[in-house]
């Protein structure tokens, strides 16, 4: 589903964010990307979403090379990936409904279908009935859930999240992670970048630990469960 083959990403300013990183994520997996800030987590997610392109190596998302995508193909490509951001990236002059509906509108889904699916997505994150509210009227945790509803409303097969719990207190963070788990349970591949140690320990999923642009450790979910058991 997501395959990195010796991927190097060097920015124009010379900084090397990823250095020959390789890994593979299977369909339906849920993976934590961990590591200090600057370890390359954000860059890795940007490569998955075709926001950046690799300097060297190959990024393959569902058998499709990101480097080979044309400009117009990138747009269509992104519509198949749900993205959750640390700062939510909501449109504050639009009501919740419009925010969640945006990916569907972008994709040209008809109004009736949009109505149905936005409500379903808001229901999944526990915000049904808040459609007409504006993001500013919501708490940070609720705003993040709007962001998640927006990420999943188009039923993507891959969901990526960059520090989705970064601004949340621990209880809310656990709530948000539980939502991600629910989506993962129905088959969505989930990739979450986080440095929240407590959170990582509470959820026994595979971890890719990044450091200096490389995958330093790859701990499968099962091993994690074992260590908790013993």
């Amino acid at each position: 589903m997501i395959r990195f083959e010796t991927v190097t990403k060097r920015y124009a300013n010379g900084r090397e964010a990823l250095a020959a990183a390789s890994f593979h994520v299977s369909p339906g997996e849920m993976v934590f990307l961990t590591g200090h800030s600057g370890a390359g987590k954000s860059t890795l997610l940007k490569l998955v979403a075709a926001i950046e392109r690799p300097t060297r190596g190959t990024v393959i998302i569902n058998r499709q090379s990101v480097s080979a995508l044309s400009r117009s193909a990138v747009a269509a490509f992104r519509r198949r990936i749900g993205m959750v951001f640390q700062d939510h990236k909501l449109l504050y002059d639009r009501p919740v409904f419009d925010n969640v509906a945006l990916p569907l509108v972008v994709d040209g889904v008809s109004r009736r279908e949009v109505d149905k699916r936005v409500r379903a997505a808001l229901d999944q994150v526990g915000l049904l009935g808040r459609e007409t509210g504006f993001p500013m009227e919501l708490s940070t945790g609720e705003q993040q859930r709007v962001g998640i509803a927006r990420a999943v409303v188009s039923r993507p097969t891959i969901l990526i999240a960059d520090e989705p719990t970064g601004n949340l207190d621990p209880d809310l963070a656990v709530d948000v992670m539980a939502i991600f788990q629910r989506f993962n349970a129905v088959g969505t591949t989930v990739l979450i970048a986080t440095h929240d140690v407590h959170l990582i320990e509470r959820f026994p999923v595979r971890r890719l630990h990044l450091g200096q642009g490389r995958v330093l450790r790859d701990e499968p979910a099962a091993a994690l469960g074992d260590s908790h058991g013993g």
Partner: peptide, 16 residues
């Protein structure tokens, strides 16, 4: 601008 950037992140085409 904010709206344009978010739309592009969500896969809006140039035409859209």
């Amino acid at each position: 601008r904010a709206e344009i950037e978010v739309s592009k992140l969500l896969g809006a085409s140039d035409g859209f």
